[in-house]
Each structure stands twice: as C-alpha cells, then as structure tokens.
Design a protein around this nucleic acid. Structure first.
Lengths: 360, 360
DNA sequence: TTGTAGGCGTTATCAA
DNA sequence: TTGATAACGCCTACAA
C-alpha cells in the first residue's frame, strides 16, 4: 500500500488539514484516493459512502469526512458501468408540445427541480424519431435508469412501445387502456366537480363546459366532474352546453361566439389555455368575468399572466407530481415495487373570474 | 477463440442470417460480440466502428455489417469511462425563464432536435443551485462532454463560473464582456435596422422602439439597429421615443398608454413578446396594425399564435443556431479549435402588422 | 494492418 | 467487519 500521495494529483492528506486551497476545480479525486487517505480499502470506502452495511460506524464516519474534505464526487459513468444506478432519469415529452402547451412546460420545469433535489440527472428525450429507435437507445445506451413519460404529451404508440420494453417506467397522467404501469396523476374529477359546483352555488344557472380532447383520460374525468356537479344538484344535463375543445388557447377563442350565443352564465374549461382564449375573446366583445360570465379553468398554469386576469382554476401540484414520479421511478429501479396509480390532490385557486360565496 | 454463442445471450451468428427474430429488445450486444462474430479482435472492431485508420476497408465494411445486423449499440457509459466522448451535452438554462420566455423554449426545442440529429444525448442543466455546485458536478461526474449555455437566460455569475472552468463551453448569445469564449448568436443589428427602415420607408414618420433589458448585448444591438435606420435616413433621433422594456409581454402591455400618447405611427419591439403585449393593449383600445400603428418584433416565436395576428418579425433560425452550437462544441471537445464568434443570419417575416412596400 | 493487454472508476463477490 | 479481485464495455498504446 503506497501511502505517498501520487505526484501530480495533489491529494491533500487529512493531516495537511482543512479544505483544499480552493483551486477552482481540484483534480478529480477518485474513490481510491479517498480510500487511501482514509486508510481503508476501496471496497470499504465504497460501502461506507453508499450506506451499505458491513462497515463500522466510526469507519463510515471517517470515510465520509475524508470524502467531504477531499471534495470527492463519484463518477457517474463508472458507477453506471459497474452495474450501479446511473442516477440519471429520462423525461420523454412530445417536443412540439413544448411550444404552446403550458402544462408540459410546467411539468418540465417541475421535473428539472425535482431531479436536482433527488440528485438525479435529467436527460431530455424527445419523440422526433420513431419510438422503437428511441426506446432501443434508451435501453442499450446504459445512460439512464428509467424513464418518465408524459402520457398526454405523447402519441399512444410511444407509450405502448415504452411500456412493452422492460425499462423502468413511470407515466405522468393516465393511460387510456393499460393498467399494468405505474402512473402518477392529479385528481381530475373531484376538483372539476368542486369548481363547477361553486359556480352553480354562486348564481350561475347555465354553466357550459369546454371539454378537452375526447379520447384523453384527463379530459374525460374533468367532464365527468362537470356532470357530477350538475347531477348532484338535480339539474338536467344539457348536452348542447358541452363544447368540444382541444386544450389550445385557440379553441377557447373560437368557441366564444357559440358560447355567447348559448346564453350561458358560466364556463368551466378543461384547461387554462382554453379559458384564456375565451377570456380574450369575451374581453374584445366587452364582456367580463364574472359579471357576465363566470369563468374557470384547470391546471394553474396561468397564474402569472401579466395583466390583471386572476383566473379561478384547479392548480396542479406540479412539484408534488414530479417528486412522486421520481420517487416511484427510483423505487422501481431498485426493484422495490411501487403503487400502480397515485393520485395527487390539487388545490383550487379561487380567482376573480368567479363570484365569491355569499356566505363569505 | 470460442466461436460458440454464449448461452443465454443468444447472439445470432451471421450465418443464421437476417435480422433477429425481433424480440422487442435483443439482449445487449457488446463490441466483443461484434468482434467475435466478425472474426476480428476487439481493437480492430473498435477502430473499424469509430472510423479510425489502421483497418483495411473490407474489414471495416464487414465489421460494420455485422454490427448493424446484430443491432450493436455502443454503451455510452463505458465509452465515456474509457476516455472517449460521452456523446452527451449539457444545456444550461435558467429554469424560471422557461415559463414565459418563448425564446428560451424555442431554443430548448431546437437543441432537443439538433442533439438528436447529431446523435448526442441532451442533459438538462438548471440554475437552481449555486453555480459552482453545478459546475463541479458537471466536470467531475463525467457524464457530459461539454455545456451549452444560454447567455441571456442566465445570471452573469453563472456564465463566469462556467467559463472559468475548463469544461468545453459554447455560449448562445453574446457575453457582455468576455471574448475568450466561443459564442454563437443571431445577427441583431442589421435585421433590426432593416425592419425599422422598412417601417420608415412605408409611411411611418414617428417610429418608436421598446428596447430590451438595457445591459443585455442583444438588446443593445437591436437598439443600435433602430438608431442606424433613423440616422441612415437623416432623421433626428428622438430619445423620448425609446421606451425601455424588459422583454416580457407585460412590458408591451403596460407601455401602451405612453406609446399611444406619444403619437407614434410605428413601433419596433426588441422581441415578440413585448410586441404581442402591445398588440393586445392596442386592440382593446380599438387600434390596429398597421392602420393606426405599424408593429414589428424580434425572435419569430409568435408565428403560430392562434388568432389572425401575423406579426412582422425577425425570425431567429433556431435550428441553425442549435446546430452550429453543437458542431462548435463537438469541435471544442475534440480539441480542434473553433471560431470565437459565429453570427447566424436571421430571416425577416413580413407579416400584416406592417405595410407593404408601395413598389410591391 | 492486426491483436494483446492495461486502464478508466465503481460495485459486487467472495475469502479472510 | 474487512479487503483483494473480478467484472462492467470500451479505448488505446504497444507489440507483433
């Protein structure tokens, strides 16, 4: 065992004490450097640092100390190659959605933060090539431990291929058919019912809905919530008040005429984007919310709109969603199993586009 | 040399012919598998596949063929560990900018595509932690070959730290002070001048400008272009017509009153977001472009706006920007050197918010 | 032009 | 509880 510091590497011994003289970026210090400095074997150092058992507590503490003082950082490539985790997760999104879909952007943002919190790298995967190509790469490249996919931002065939592969996968949102996959989603039905109910309870008599893309699970659930609210109050369901949208701002904008023509006094939109589009169109017609029409959305992605607009909306807990998804994925990677479906509770932001309860 | 397929790995020999029986994802085939199947050594196979010299052409062809038929994919982690390139690049952005900054989103989108074209992985790096922390990780983790940073989407200290590190770095945009770094940017001054000139040449007599964040290079250059256009036509520069904005939609919205009060008949905005905000505000006042006020922006991020709005704007060639940046970074990683500053030519989209040339 | 062998930094499997 | 030692998959001198 050669205890002499390797020339050129400049490994400070513990005795020489204190933090390194702060060269901006000390030469890479490897596990073997740490082991040497701590006077233990490579294996012991590895175990100590990874929290595995089979190390005396005082040894573990010493190794940890040395590692810290040396500024040791494990090399992820090596870690990965050696069969450990890569500590990198993939996030698969529809690249084109990024442009105008605020939900996707918020998701991306949340995952960026959550990944950092979990000390995981975040690899951005996109769908511009064929699914199988990407999936292949994912699995074989050995660069990531698992994938998180946004169901709603991806064509079905993508999701299918991914799920059929044996890569650890967590889906954010719900899959229309498959239940053999871990999914993390926000509750859709309940809060939709809550918001619509609120409109009905604060003076609205004809509440319309702009629904989302028909075949999507979240859209269906929000629509169900709308129905729930009406039925619960013994109101008849007027199908002509359900306008079919597509989650885009343009949809809300274009449906304005029809909606105004239907003489409604409240509109629940399946997402904020459509609510915003509708709001703009209404504004141009000199109509405002909630005076003329109560307005509510879903997602909470428009809270920071620049103008006064303070939309009532169901706020997705993006950070919780991301965090949960990552925890689930890690658990999957470690073969610890994970719950099939986890529904996260959103909050409702009661903005100024709906009336306040008279009781308040 | 054992030519017998290793049990459990199921490596199809060439003789057994054709593409594998399409198990969705054949067991990982390694370089050594390829070498074995091709009847050459590991080293030879490596050389052949990596285009290094010292391999007979026919051997190279054969290895390539075998590799393809086996569906060989190099393991990036191993490649990286062995000192080769990781084939992963980092993209460092300000995570909060993602929310409302269309430029950043477009950039991200472009890089996602470009990275895929170059067969590079894209690691999303964010600025939520301290710079040095991230930089450290980048350098030591050994997962990425270099970083691309968006200058305008990052605090200066970030850029500084990154540049001071010895990691291969390309900056998209311009750095206010440092010139010792490779930068890729769009031309700002010329096209700004062109657009403003167009407004002046098509009947506008008082053209205002909403500038961007003062200390940013791109903002300064666009402003310079505005000045150029006026001066070139021998017009006096009315400083009161330069309104200071901050690149947000809200800025355009809020400046509307002032601008209308200044009795201008044209406004050049330092980016599209401000132009959109201004447009909305004008529309609410019953004013429209170009009848009342000619309007132009910069970036080209609003072309797909949902309503009729067809804004005249300088369109950034995002894909070219991304491609150039990646090529430059790769060249840097390979220590081949690269040009200090590369300016990419944008195009101008002549929309309906400015008048047409009378000649047309 | 080829092949052999050593090493990249970790983790994991064994003996001790 | 420890510590050698063999993988992991690849690249690259160096030797043949």
């Amino acid at each position: 065992m050669n205890e002499i510091p390797i020339p050129g590497r400049g490994i400070p011994t513990i005795a020489s004490g204190g933090p390194p003289e702060a060269p901006p970026f000390p030469a890479n210090v490897t596990l073997s450097d740490v082991a040497q400095a701590a006077g233990v074997s490579l294996a012991a150092a590895s175990r100590a640092l990874n929290g595995k058992e089979g190390v005396r507590e005082n040894v573990r503490a010493r190794v940890q100390l040395v590692a810290d003082s040396l500024g040791y950082r494990p090399n992820r490539a090596a870690k990965n190659l050696a069969g450990g985790r890569a500590s990198v997760i993939g996030l698969l999104l529809c690249i084109d959605e990024l442009q105008n879909n605020h939900y996707v952007i918020s998701l991306l943002q949340a995952f960026a933060k959550a990944a950092e919190d979990h000390d995981e790298g975040l690899m951005l995967l996109t769908d511009s090539r064929s699914p199988s190509k990407v999936v292949e790469n994912l699995i074989r490249d050995g660069l990531i431990d698992g994938v998180i996919i946004s169901a709603i931002a991806l064509e079905d065939r993508w999701v299918e291929e991914l799920l059929d592969a044996k890569l650890a996968t967590v889906i954010v949102g719900a899959h229309p058919r498959r239940s053999d996959v871990c999914a993390v989603d926000v509750k859709n039905r309940e809060p939709a019912k809550l918001v619509v109910g609120h409109m009905l309870d604060t003076g609205c008599e004809r509440v319309a809905m702009i629904s989302g893309i028909a075949h999507r699970v979240d859209a269906a659930r929000r629509l169900a919530g709308y129905r729930d609210a009406l039925l619960e109050r013994g109101l008849v369901l007027d199908e002509s008040l359900i306008f079919s949208g597509n989650f885009t701002r343009g949809a809300g904008w274009e449906l304005c005429d029809e909606i105004v023509g239907a003489r409604v006094d409240g509109v629940f939109c399946a997402n904020d984007q459509m609510a915003l589009g509708l709001h703009d169109a209404l504004q141009l017609r000199g109509l405002s919310a909630p005076e003329d029409i109560s307005l509510a959305g879903f997602d909470g992605t428009s809270l920071d709109e620049f103008r006064g607009l303070d939309l009532t909306t169901v706020v997705q807990p993006f950070s919780v969603l991301a965090d949960t998804a990552i925890v689930t994925l890690k658990s999957l990677v470690d073969r610890k199993g994970a719950p099939r479906e986890q529904l996260v509770q959103p909050t409702v932001h009661w903005g100024s586009t709906t009336r306040r309860r008279s009781a308040e």
